[in-house]
Computed example of a mutant assay.
Amino acid sequence: MGKTELRKSLLKTRQSLSVTDWKHKSQLICQNLLNSPQFNQAKTILAYFSFRQEPDLSQLFTDSSHRWGFPRCVGQSLDWHIWTHKDTVITGIYGITEPHPDAPTIASADVDLIFVPCVACDYQGYRLGYGGGYYDRMLSSPEWINKPTIGIVFEFAYLPEIPIDTWDKPLQGVCTEIALVYQ
Rank of each mutant, 00 (worst) to 15 (best):
K23E: 14
R67W: 05
Q53A: 13
K25T: 04
T20S: 14
V19T: 11
H81Q: 02
A42V: 08
T62Y: 11
D63C: 10
G75N: 07
E54H: 08
S77P: 01
F61D: 02
Q59Y: 04
K43V: 08
W80Y: 10
S18H: 10
T20P: 05
K23P: 01
H66D: 06
C73D: 00
Q38D: 13
Q53I: 06
D79Y: 01
S77V: 01
T62G: 04
L46K: 05
T62M: 07
R67L: 04
F51Q: 04
Q41T: 03
Q27D: 06
V74H: 02
D79S: 01
A42C: 04
Y48W: 06
T62R: 07
E54Q: 11
V74G: 01
T20Q: 14
W22M: 04
N35R: 15
P55E: 07
W22K: 08
R72M: 13
S50D: 14
N32R: 04
L57I: 07
Q41N: 13
H24L: 09
A47P: 04
V19N: 15
L34M: 13
P55D: 13
K43Q: 12
L46R: 00
Q76D: 11
R52P: 10
L17C: 05
S64V: 03
G75S: 01
P55S: 14
S36A: 08
D79K: 02
R67Q: 15
K25Y: 11
S26V: 09
R67C: 15
C73Q: 01
S64G: 00
K43F: 12
S65M: 08
Q27E: 10
K43A: 07
H81Y: 02
V19Y: 14
I29T: 04
T62I: 07
S36E: 02
S58R: 14
I45T: 11
D63N: 15
S36K: 08
Q41H: 12
L33N: 03
Q41L: 06
I29M: 02
S18I: 09
Q59R: 11
T62F: 10
D21M: 09
Q76L: 01
L46N: 13
H24W: 03
I29W: 09
F49H: 15
S77H: 01
W80F: 02
P37D: 09
A42I: 12
W22Q: 03
L57N: 01
N40C: 06
L28C: 10
D56Y: 09
G75R: 00
C73F: 00
L78D: 08
W68R: 02
L33D: 09
L78V: 00
H66K: 12
L34P: 03
